[in-house]
Each structure stands twice: as C-alpha cells, then as structure tokens.
C-alpha cells in the first residue's frame, strides 16, 4: 500500500548536511499496525509527517498504491491526504474554541459531507467512545484521556484507511494509555492501517510490526506475534 524507496530527509546547514532520515526503504501493507520506536531525535515524527503528506521536502520516492506522490498534482495530493489519512497527536491538538462535537465535525466539513450524514457519523462516534454527554463541552473542560478520545474520534470520522499517531499516549497516565491502545487494536481489527510512533515498548505489543529507528536509519524491523 505504501512504499518508501531510498528516502532521505536532511537539513542544509552552513557547513554540512544534517540527515534526519537516511536511506529509508519501507513497505507497508494494508491492515498492518506498525509501531515506530527509537530514542528522541531518531526521526520517528519526521517519518510520520512524510508518510502523512505533511512534509514534502525530502529526497527519494514515496509510492501510495502504485502512484508516486511526487508525480501527483497538488489537487490530487490534497484529495489523497483528505480521504486516506487520519492524524492523532501527543498534545491532542483540539481546537480550543470548538466544542467536542464541533471538533469531530471539522474534518467532515473539509470533506463536504452532508449535514445529516455528519450528524449520524458524529452520533455514532460519540456513542462508541461514551462521550454523548460531553459533546457540548470545550476541550479545556476534559481530562487528557478524554481529549485524546476526541482526537481519535476526529481522526477516524472521515473513515481514513491510514491512521497516523505521534506519541498518542505520551501525555497520558498508564490506565488512560491502555484504554487508547485498546481502541487502536479495535480499529486495527476493523481493517484500518495504523502507524504509531511511541517511546513505550508495551504499546508495541498491540501492533503487528515493530520498527526501530536510530539516528534516522531503520535499525530493526520485526513482526510481533500476538
């Protein structure tokens, strides 16, 4: 489904090139649940951003399906970005001025989903995450775990095929983190491809594949048997 070929990402500084990613070759099949691990600065977030089409400044090739991202027009790339990817952040990144309901609604608005359809999608999600009573609250009124639940709901509202999560449990305590990971597992069994970056080894156990990054290189790539 996703194929990276000899991908480099570097910053030109005055005297030298500093590589953030170097020589990444990666093949991701539909339905995989991949965990990216590695110390701070290893390039996990950078790789996620590139995978999620948020960063287009790299060398090498990126194929989505059998099409090269580089050969796509802006419009196509932006459509791909909208229809195929969902994002979850460590700091949740909910829009403070919008209620829970409105936050979940946002990606649907950009996908031109009709009003009645939006209502039913959001109602389902709220129901699924047990947040019906909180739908009119603002993010600041929620606990971290609850905010991340909204973040997930928002990410999957548009039914993306690929879910990208950057340290989704980084700001949560372990009970909340476990809850979030259970949801990921559930989404995975429903068929969503998930790629998460994390520091916590235990989170990798929910996935199917573990990739270790060190200094911008893939150090190991192993399957995890559940």
């Amino acid at each position: 489904m996703i194929q990276l070929k000899n991908l480099d990402k570097y910053i030109e500084s005055r005297f030298q090139r500093v590589f953030l990613l170097k020589g990444i070759n990666l093949n991701i099949k539909e339905g995989e649940f991949i965990t990216l691990m590695g110390p701070s600065g290893a390039g996990k977030s950078t790789l996620l951003n590139i995978l999620g089409l948020l960063d287009e400044d790299y060398a090498g090739d990126y194929f989505f399906g059998d099409r090269s991202i580089r050969s796509m027009k802006d419009k196509e790339r932006s459509n791909l970005h909208k229809s195929e990817f969902g994002y979850i952040f460590q700091a949740y990144h909910l829009i403070d001025e919008l209620t829970v309901y409105e936050n979940i609604e946002t990606p649907l608005l950009y996908r031109n989903v009709s009003s009645s359809e939006r209502k039913s999608i959001i109602a389902n999600l709220l129901d699924r995450f047990n947040m019906v009573a909180k739908k009119d609250l603002f993010p600041a009124q929620l606990s971290g775990g609850q905010q991340q639940l909204v973040g997930i709901a928002r990410a999957i509202a548009g039914r993306p095929r690929v879910l990208l999560a950057d340290e989704p449990t980084g700001n949560l305590h372990s009970a909340q983190a476990k809850e979030i990971m259970e949801i990921f597992k559930e989404l995975h069994t429903e068929g969503t491809t998930i790629i998460q970056a994390t520091h916590a080894r235990e989170n990798a156990d929910f996935g199917t594949r573990l990739i270790n990054l060190v200094d911008g290189r893939i150090e190991s790539d192993e399957a995890i048997a559940n």
Partner: peptide, 9 residues
Amino acid sequence: EVGVRKTMG
C-alpha cells in the same frame, strides 16, 4: 488551529 485544520484537510 491552522496546523490542525490543515492536517484535517
């Protein structure tokens, strides 16, 4: 907000 909205498409 700009960042989030852009990520949302």
